[in-house]
Design a protein around this nucleic acid. Sequence first.
DNA 1: TGCATATGCAACCGTTTGGTTGCATAATGT
DNA 2: ACATTATGCAACCAAACGGTTGCATATGCA
Lengths: 108, 108
Amino acid sequence: MKRDVFQAIADPTRRAIIALIALHAMTPNALAEHFDTSRQAVSKHLRILAECELVRQDQKGREIYYSLEIEKMKEIDEWISQYRKIWESRFEQLDTLLAELKHQKTRS
Amino acid sequence: MKRDVFQAIADPTRRAIIALIALHAMTPNALAEHFDTSRQAVSKHLRILAECELVRQDQKGREIYYSLEIEKMKEIDEWISQYRKIWESRFEQLDTLLAELKHQKTRS
DNA sequence: TGCATATGCAACCGTTTGGTTGCATAATGT
DNA sequence: ACATTATGCAACCAAACGGTTGCATATGCA
């Protein structure tokens, strides 16, 4: 069952999990307390996140600490960056247009 | 039926549609030729993209030209930017660490 | 006017999703 | 040793997803 990163971040609960473990590693139990779903549901979300390598697991005794694999987030950033280029270039175009208008006004 | 942007970009076909209409506006028929699904399936994807305001529709006669609403893409960029901050700060930390190590080596 | 074309919508269908409950396993503490 | 705690896994279920086909509507053209 191959899942990609975009599938993983589609669910709001998973995005919330990502936000939480980005700050510091957390156990499934600790995470579950932040949501009004069962611990097992959170565990399922973590499994999905682990499947596409968005989280790292560190076993400490019987506890497993999950933390964000920030490198994988770059994949999303790379995807959005191609569109960032578009709006940045449009902004530049607007910028030069405004400069031209200002120039015309000064001359009139 | 409220859908958010992350749901919308979760599907690979929709991401492909986004990539196509980012360059120039296209009709559903023209889009459908790029995929091996029915025109109606593409139409459904367009409806979902339109629901969360990721596309603009321009009617020209009986044709409807769909183009990317680039502003909405910034929403995704804003989300990812909070994590971009994390890996950039980590890179800086690594950078200063390397600088320190180099300094120590020079002094030894 | 009549016919082809472009599109959206509704109904249906198999698969996936996100949740639940129950159970098994392993580590901790008394 | 035994009860408690932390976790994952399997089975089940309703809802959503992504696709299909069929049909309705509206525009363009001869």
